[in-house]
Amino acid sequence: MSMQTPATQSMFQPNQMMRRVMGGAFVGVGVISILISLGMLVYLVLDVAMRGLPWIDWQFLTSFDSRFAERAGILAAIAGTAFMMTMTIAVSLPIGVMAAIYLQEYAKESWLKSFIQINISNLAGVPSIIYGLLGLTIFVRYMMMGRSVLAGALTMALLVLPVIVVATQEALRAVPSSIRDASLALGATRSQTIWHHVLPQAFPGILTGNILAASRAIGETAPLVTIGALTYVPFTPESPLDRFTVLPIQIFNWTSKPQAEFHDLAAAGIVVLLLVLLTMNSIAILLRQRVGGTSRRRIG
């Protein structure tokens, strides 16, 4: 600043006062935005927690739905959600990651690749109800799976696949190409390079993408309503072909009951859903820190 020539100094209007005001205003707008979004979240979570928490006890977690609010529980929905999500991840994770590896590491730049790439990005933005209709046509009707956990899980797998592919590609892209070059230079094959060096490096990012995708799927209601997840299910699904219900459907069902105490019960269901989400995310963060640590050591 002090090195400026007199000529530029005369043209340069420091206007420090104004700049400081503008700078401060910018920070202020930022802080207000944060407060609005956080405030809404805090309000919503508090509202749900205050209404729902008194209802959450062992009985609520281990009972099936009932027409009496104080006897109703969420067991079938928890079991249905857990069963369905396990199958969804088991199907979508390998397919999604392999697809991303192919696109990112093997596929040559061509019109076909960019065509596929654009379509995957577009699919990630398709409304979920469309996936429900697709699942209804393909899995429920054509492949005769019926309105089962399996059909629900496969529909959800379709829904999350594009998200997983995009996130995995992102993670693979973040691995420096010097690592690939070094591995190849030492005589490793391409697949060895990917398995031993690229994937471990990219693993935290891949995991994050998958958790985000699973978090999206766990709250989805529309596609499951379309394929026919049920309302009153007083049993836990035992085989992939059993009928089922999931947390969001159980919550929705309670909110549409006339009795007011069921609306509080729905809040309790939401608290459970939030806890499931938080647990999933914490497990992922833990996993990622451990795996991330070992991979870094291996590379070092």
Binding site: D47, S215, I218, G219, A266, I270, L274, L277
Partner: peptide
């Protein structure tokens, strides 16, 4: 971010319904 988004989506559902 994902956590917040998921949480707020669920919470919004709760408010809308309740």
């Amino acid at each position: 971010a994902g956590l917040l988004a998921a949480a707020s989506a669920v919470a919004a559902l709760a408010l809308a319904c309740g």
